[in-house]
């Protein structure tokens, strides 16, 4: 008995060392980015003992924020992510409601088309999407950045699954009270699915905020870029200097990190629900 207890505690000790050791490795690059960003230009940021010693400065942030493009990129990223999130929630919940609770001709076919779309990665669509945007004269525009994200059917799938679980009696009772379909959707299904909607919202926002490949192709004008597209161009102008790009990295990461800290549970729930990268 004592033997097995001792073995258990040695096992746990190894787990603690491994767990927190890995945490240090996981945090090191981020800590290094954050600290580097507040060091004066030309500091020796690779000498560990020097890294955490004064002087510190906010000049790098002043410099980055003094660059007009960074402001446009932040504005574009925020606008695109917000619009994509709001519209995704609206469009997907309406569609999910129809697929879950309304009987109509062709429902099966549409559901199969939705399932198929789940499997198609944007990477395989970049050429035709670009051709379509050229035809519509939308290259370098907000619609070009927003519209393809709205065609992702993941939310329809998730919300339909949730709606399918809402008891029939609730809907029947609302119908007896004279509520129409729109009313049932708006004041019964939406409030009931709050937590699934929240998970979907945060997941959509973070995905959109970090989107790289499509915005990289759809936008060529500097002032129309989003942060992930803009930052690497900003950086290549400063290859020798790594302190200023790190300040830009911190700024670009702040909203995502904040969203993560505030809504961690929802994000993790979102992944468990979807199982899709």
């Amino acid at each position: 008995m004592t033997n097995s207890l001792r073995r258990m505690s040695i096992g746990r000790l190894i787990l603690y060392v491994l767990g927190f050791g890995l945490a240090v490795i996981w945090l090191a690059p981020l800590v290094w980015m954050i600290v580097t960003a507040v060091k004066p230009a030309g500091s020796a940021v690779t000498v560990m003992s020097e890294l955490f010693k004064a002087p510190f400065t906010l000049d790098n942030y002043k410099y980055v924020l003094g660059n007009a493009s960074v402001w446009s990129w932040t504005l574009n990223s925020s606008l695109v992510a917000l619009v994509v999130t709001v519209l995704t929630l609206l469009i997907n919940s309406l569609a999910a409601f129809a697929l879950s609770r309304i009987r109509f001709v062709g429902k099966q076919l549409i559901f199969w088309l939705v399932l198929m779309g789940l499997m198609v990665p944007i990477e395989a669509k970049i050429i035709p999407l670009f051709q379509i945007m050229v035809d519509l004269n939308l290259i370098n525009s907000y619609p070009a950045l927003i519209l393809p994200s709205l065609a992702a059917p993941l939310g329809v799938f998730i919300l339909k699954q949730f709606y399918d679980g809402i008891p029939k009696d609730l809907v029947e009772a609302a119908k007896i009270d004279g509520a129409g379909l729109l009313r049932i959707y708006w004041s019964l299904f939406l409030p009931l699915s709050r937590s699934s909607m929240a998970a979907l919202a945060i997941f959509t926002f973070v995905t959109s905020w970090n989107n790289y490949l499509w915005p990289f192709l759809a936008v060529t004008e500097e002032k129309m870029m989003t942060l992930p597209v803009g930052i690497p161009t900003f950086q290549s102008a400063y290859t020798a200097e790594l302190i200023i790009p790190m300040a830009a990295n911190v700024l670009a990461s702040l909203p995502a990190i904040l969203a993560f800290i505030l809504f961690q549970k929802h994000i993790i729930k979102g992944i468990t629900m979807t199982g899709i990268k």
């Binding site: 309406l94 129809a98 379509i132």
Partner: peptide, 27 residues
């Protein structure tokens, strides 16, 4: 109900046809 179903689906179907189904065919 048929009409209602498609009205609810309309915004999704428009976007989905233009930026998911059509690109697959066009590609």
């Amino acid at each position: 109900e048929n009409i209602a179903g498609y009205l609810f689906l309309l915004p999704f179907l428009i976007i989905y046809s233009m930026f998911m189904l059509y690109p697959i065919v066009r590609g």
